[in-house]
Amino acid sequence: MDWRQLWEICSAPDNVPIVGLIPLLIFYIYLAWKQARANDELIGQLETNPAMAKTHHRKSWPFRPGWQKEIHVWPFLLRMEFLVAMIVTIILMVWSITLNAPLEEPANPNLTMNPAKAPWYFLGLQEMLVYFDPWIAGVVMPTLIIVGLMVIPYIDTNPLGSGYYTWKQRKFSIGTFLFGFIILWIAMIIIGTFIRGPGWQWFWPGQTWDHNRLIYEVNRDLPDLFGITSNLGKAIFGGIVVGGFYAVGGFIMHSLFRRYNPKDYKRMSLLQYSIMMFFVLSMVALPAKMLLRLAWHIKYVWITPWFNV
């Protein structure tokens, strides 16, 4: 266990935000979960007791007759805003006094940094470069992330859970978002920050970064395993595999979704449904490709003269 190496990674000034992000995320997930549980309990009570549902104020926070439903922004909200601004300023001041922004040697195109890392918030994308060619990891994936986020309000037809924390009413959408945000984005950033060392090789936390380490890894392409050698054969085979992933995956998703989410399924239009399917399957494609690579050393699935997947 090389504690010094671990300390060097964690205390690198630009890694401090991601070190701070982890406890922050845990805290806020806990905060959301606590409120979701309280609301779900209340929803359960109200559903079994229609008489109570008619009179209850429907929040898990207390409300007594005679209390005003609305309060003045001045002073009740503004004092909160002022307090928050002061706390943020204090945190920022202390942080800026105790920790210096990094400044390396002057830029030198002839001296490559190893590892050359992007800013920490893009390390998820850089980690994806291991599993996909740059045109997918660097261009298509970010575009899909942005477009995918933008279509969310138009494909989520569930009218429940608007304006309050809940889990039971929105299991699928919250589950999918947590998968995308925590597993595909944050976890990838953590791998990129703490695990990847020189040569973008995998170093477990506490393992010494060995700049001379060589890994003899023979990566294969999926068509090779099936003994396909001709270019045309590879292109057709890969197209079938990728198309098959979306077709078979789509079928499995479909059979699960209509069973466990019948109401959403009924509400969604064909366009909404197929867009959702495409994005969910593309999200799953990332860990699927990672598994192929890490477990079976498979580099490409689909090889064509113009692009490789």
């Binding site: 806020y28 969310i152 989520d156 569930n158 429940l160 859970g161 304006g163 924390y165 978002f177």
Partner: peptide, 11 residues
Amino acid sequence: FRVFLTGSYKK
């Protein structure tokens, strides 16, 4: 993250 969890993007 908060806006998503509270379903605040809905209609």
